[in-house]
């Protein structure tokens, strides 16, 4: 537990220093994206890593947050009100959808999450009060924390860093709590967990609600950052997939998995692909998809699992 806190502190200081030193907007943009993905991957990890219920529908929760912020802007409310309502909406949907769906396991559950998210996407594309398939463009306001609009990218990096630290702290607390133990037990063997009094559905539901809320928070930050929401870029299946893939690449059910996955994603998929002139041409997908295939076939414990093995081996050797 202490080592986790120390690593978190060092990471936050390092990221903050990096953001203050580099002036390059492209790198700041990349840092913001990596932090946001680390948050999304960790939130997903609570349900799909620790509890082992693989969701391919998290774009729905992401969309709740994004549309909450967009609606608030549209109707001249404070963005903070929009964020709060997006989080509440995501949690409510998680409760309503999770309750029946946690009767399912394995691919039955995964496909159900795809179906639910697809229904949500189709609904939004046809809902007038959400401006349908066109989406919502934000009205510009004077910069500041009140309007949650800024003229530079630096405040965004710090905001994302704060949320990232919060989510990591929550995960450290989770790992050292009854809930963390129960979720891991459910993933390992639901039947045996029930035999010692673990109500799998109730705990999975709690994890999903927390996960939905955190994902919605990240969604509203993303919307405030880009100042536009479109169903295609917020709610579509590829968004759900990238959230899941960050979690898988890093390593399921591990504290630093999502952060490592997000770093890999930002570096490989965005930076390298951009350097090779392949952004928008699918090269990021090729690199990332290939990486997932390799990890699934060779190292299911992900990058974080690999790093841990390395350390364990060194400790044995030394």
């Amino acid at each position: 537990m202490r080592s986790g806190l120390v690593i978190l502190l060092v990471t936050c200081v390092a990221v903050a220093a990096f953001a203050l030193i580099v002036q390059n907007p492209f790198l700041l943009d990349l840092t913001f994206a990596a932090l946001l993905y680390a948050v999304l991957g960790q939130a997903w990890n609570w349900v799909s890593g620790y509890a082992g219920q693989v969701s391919f529908g998290h774009a729905l929760f992401f969309g709740c947050g994004a549309y909450g912020a967009a609606l608030a802007n549209w109707h001249h409310f404070s963005p903070w009100l929009g964020i709060a309502s997006g989080i509440v909406a995501a949690a409510a949907i998680a409760l309503a959808v999770g309750f029946p769906c946690f009767a399912l396991r394995g691919h039955y559950f995964s496909i159900a999450t795809i179906a639910v998210a697809a229904i949500g996407e189709i609904y939004v594309k046809n809902a007038d009060w959400l401006n349908g398939a066109v989406g919502i463009e934000f009205k510009l306001a004077s910069a500041g924390l009140g309007s949650l609009q800024f003229t530079s990218k630096l405040p965004w990096v710090f905001l994302a860093l704060a949320v990232f630290a919060l989510v990591q702290l929550a995960t450290i607390a989770l790992e050292n709590s009854r809930m963390g133990y129960y979720l891991r037990a459910i993933r390992a063997n639901q039947d045996a967990a029930a035999s010692v009094g673990v109500d799998a559905r109730a705990w999975e539901l709690r994890a999903l609600i927390a996960s939905a809320a955190a994902t919605a928070l990240a969604g509203s930050l993303y919307a405030q950052y880009t100042l536009v929401v479109e169903p295609e870029s917020i709610l579509a299946l590829p968004i759900s997939i990238s959230i899941a893939l960050v979690g898988v690449v890093g390593g399921l059910g591990q504290l630093w998995g999502p952060a490592l996955g997000a770093l890999t994603y930002a570096f490989l998929a965005k930076y390298v692909a951009a350097q090779l002139g392949g952004s928008g041409r699918g090269l990021d997908l090729v690199i990332y998809g290939g990486l997932i295939c390799l990890i699934a076939a060779l190292r299911p414990s992900g990058i974080a699992g690999y790093v841990r093995e390395l350390f364990a081996r060194r400790r044995l050797a030394g």
């Binding site: 133990y181 129960y182 891991r184 037990a185 390992a188 063997n189 035999s195 010692v196 673990v198």
Partner: peptide, 17 residues
């Protein structure tokens, strides 16, 4: 039906919780 990826202490802790 053990919890394969948990240590002995962790698995028994799940029961004690």
């Amino acid at each position: 039906q053990t919890f394969a990826e948990m240590t002995v202490l962790e698995a028994v802790t799940v029961g004690a919780l």
